[in-house]
Simulated scan of single mutants.
Amino acid sequence: MKIDLTGRVAVVTGGSGQLGRVMCRTLAACGADVAVHYHSNATQAAALVEELRALGVRAHAVQADVTDEASVTAMRDDVSATLGEPDIIVNNAVIQYDWKPVLEQPLADFDSQYRSTVLHSVLMARAFVPAMARRSWGRVIAINTEVAMQVAPTQAAYAAGKRGLDGVMRVLTREIGPHGITVNQVAPGWMISEDHPADDSEGQAAYARGVPLRRRGTDQDVANLVAFLASDLAAFISGQYVSVSGGNVMPTI
């Protein structure tokens, strides 16, 4: 079996970021045309688009604020006019900040996490799902995190946003499934990326010792699952929160 996304159009929010770049490359390597969303890094997005086009697919960079409805709608119109109506959306963009205890975390951080995870995914669904429903085929993939299950000290704002995302995605699964659209969440652990390579720090070593596979994964491991869920091979998989953490967290039955 082969993951073949030829003829499909994908939108990756936060596509110019460290995980986003790997997902865009992987989807393009499987044959998908890719819209690379960015918020502020136009240079990185443009460079990635050229890289994807070299793989023989169409690619387009598009700017948007994923927490603003008008901006997301404008992104949809831009992508549809340039690449065609998307079949696959990957909700990856998120606002990052310093983690602090609940009693010390600025209230604005809780709001930003809600807006960049929950509201982001709601706006993406409203913008792109109707066209998927008309074609009776679509893939909605949201990037969650193992933190949603860990709920460790200092993770409150991040966990709150991602657990809210989980609820929205599960409800969406039931609402749009009759239209032939799958909805899934990919939940990475603490991964090795282009911007954050592995080192021998005690924190990273301690984390790896707690993982059943005794190592950290890579952003490519995450992208591989995204490509699978976007494909026809995953046609009957929906409503799932899938951990990519080497067993560090395990969703239970």
Rank of each mutant, 00 (worst) to 15 (best):
Q155W: 14
V147M: 03
Q185M: 15
A156H: 10
A152R: 14
I176A: 07
P153F: 01
R174S: 07
K162L: 11
V147A: 13
P178G: 01
E146L: 15
A152N: 07
A157V: 04
G180W: 00
V147I: 09
V171W: 03
Y158D: 01
A152D: 08
Q155A: 11
G161E: 00
K162P: 02
G164A: 12
Q185C: 15
I181C: 15
P188H: 11
T182P: 06
I176R: 11
V168C: 03
A187W: 10
R174T: 06
V183T: 09
Q185K: 15
G177H: 07
E146N: 12
E175D: 08
V147E: 01
G161M: 12
A160G: 05
P188V: 13
A160E: 12
P178H: 03
N184I: 03
E175F: 05
G167Y: 07
A148M: 15
T173Y: 05
A187Y: 14
R163C: 13
P153G: 10
A160W: 02
R163E: 05
E175P: 06
W190C: 10
V147C: 04
A157M: 01
R174Y: 07
R163T: 14
G180Y: 10
N144T: 08
A187P: 09
V171I: 08
A148L: 11
G161T: 01
V147F: 01
K162N: 01
A159N: 01
N184G: 07
T145G: 07
V168Y: 02
V183S: 02
V186G: 03
R170W: 12
Q150M: 13
L172F: 04
I181V: 14
R170E: 04
V183F: 09
G161R: 05
V186N: 01
R174Q: 08
H179V: 05
Q150P: 00
D166M: 09
L172A: 07
A187V: 04
V171F: 04
A148S: 10
L172T: 00
A156T: 12
Q185L: 15
G189R: 15
